[in-house]
């Protein structure tokens, strides 16, 4: 009699794969909007045409630009004037330190954010000057000279004081670009800093109170508390996170999440940090996986050889 097993195997595998295709790739393609990455080009933002002068930029940042009224620049010896929760109470969110902005953010974005913050961040729908809803960061209207030149100078200054791209760690990228709104419990990160193990319960409670105050401020500012991102690498996946960082409005029109304007490199580092938080054992999984696959193939081969020997006598 003809051996029907190959045909049966084909039928079984075919129907299994069809089912898999329909409920996984196909259904998810229908359920979720496909957003294609534009490689963090920020093509909608104008390019910087002037050559910036860092020295002049420093003067503007510290003087006419009035940046240091709200922003700290730790590397330049300008510490934060307020605690994170007081700053959040005043502005809605703690303004970022400018020390490493120059390397982590796209320069076109930095230039645009100085001139028109809610345009660069794509959250104009949240701020309407006519209704008295101002973006917490006031636009820079120029210090009397050529505004484009002045902005280029400021960007050049920020770039000059930054660490190099190679020195930006995943942790730094996350904390600067995401960490002022999003906690990351599994890495012990709260929006006001790393949650230390306080020995004294009073210290811990004091910290918790500051944390609650911060969360209240940011909840008021954003409409809801930005979620903890600990498991986002599993719940959203790399592609979603990357394209969401690049252009939140493309995924969720009307979301209060601003475009953060990071470079592709910074986004990659943020994702690496999220992997450390939510997919910590990925390297071990790949490695163990190889060994297990090799073993199980050997197992199957030996089982087959055994079967062949046993069945020799049966036919």
């Amino acid at each position: 009699m003809k051996n029907k097993e190959p045909l049966i195997a084909v039928v079984v595998i075919f129907f299994s794969l069809v089912t898999y295709y329909l409920v996984e790739p196909y259904a998810h393609h229908v359920l979720h909007k496909e957003v294609i990455s534009k490689n963090f080009a920020y093509a909608d933002l104008p390019a910087i045409t002037k050559t910036g002068d860092a020295t002049r930029g420093q003067e503007l940042l510290m003087g006419a630009g009035a940046c240091v009224g709200c922003h700290s620049i730790e590397v330049a010896g300008i510490p934060a004037t307020m605690t994170p929760h007081d700053a959040a109470a005043a502005y809605g969110v703690n303004p970022p330190d400018l020390s490493n902005m120059g390397v982590m953010y796209d320069e076109k974005f930095l230039a645009d954010v100085i001139k028109n913050p809610s345009h660069a961040m794509m959250n104009e729908h949240m701020f309407d000057a006519e209704k008295g809803l101002m973006h917490p960061m006031p636009p820079f209207y120029g210090a009397g000279g050529d505004i484009d030149q002045e902005v280029a100078d400021m960007v050049a200054y920020m770039q000059s004081i930054s660490v190099t791209k190679e020195d930006v760690t995943p942790k730094m990228a996350y904390e600067n670009a995401c960490g002022r709104c999003h906690a990351l419990e599994y890495e012990k990160w709260t929006q006001i800093g790393t949650h230390k193990n306080f020995k004294d319960k009073k210290d811990d409670l004091a910290y918790q109170i500051d944390f609650i105050k911060y969360k209240e401020s940011i909840t008021g500012f954003m409409g809801k508390l930005p979620p903890d991102l600990s498991m986002y690498i599993r719940s959203r996946g790399e592609h979603f996170i990357s394209t969401f960082i690049e252009d939140p409005q493309a995924h969720l029109p009307g979301t209060s999440m601003p475009r953060v304007g990071v470079t592709a490199d910074t986004a990659e580092k943020v994702i690496e940090y999220l992997k450390d938080a939510g997919d910590t054992k990925r390297v071990e999984r790949e490695e163990i996986g190889q060994y297990v696959m090799i073993y199980i193939v050997i197992f199957a081969i030996f089982a087959f050889l055994w079967k062949r020997q046993v069945w020799k006598e049966l036919h």
Binding site: Y295, I298, F299, F302, A303, L305, W306, R308, Q309, V310
Partner: peptide, 19 residues
């Protein structure tokens, strides 16, 4: 009597169990 291949298969399975 499992024969040689039966024993060999048993050994492979045992390695997996120990792992």
């Amino acid at each position: 009597r499992r024969g040689f291949m039966g024993k060999a298969f048993g050994a492979v399975a045992a390695v997996g169990a120990i792992g």
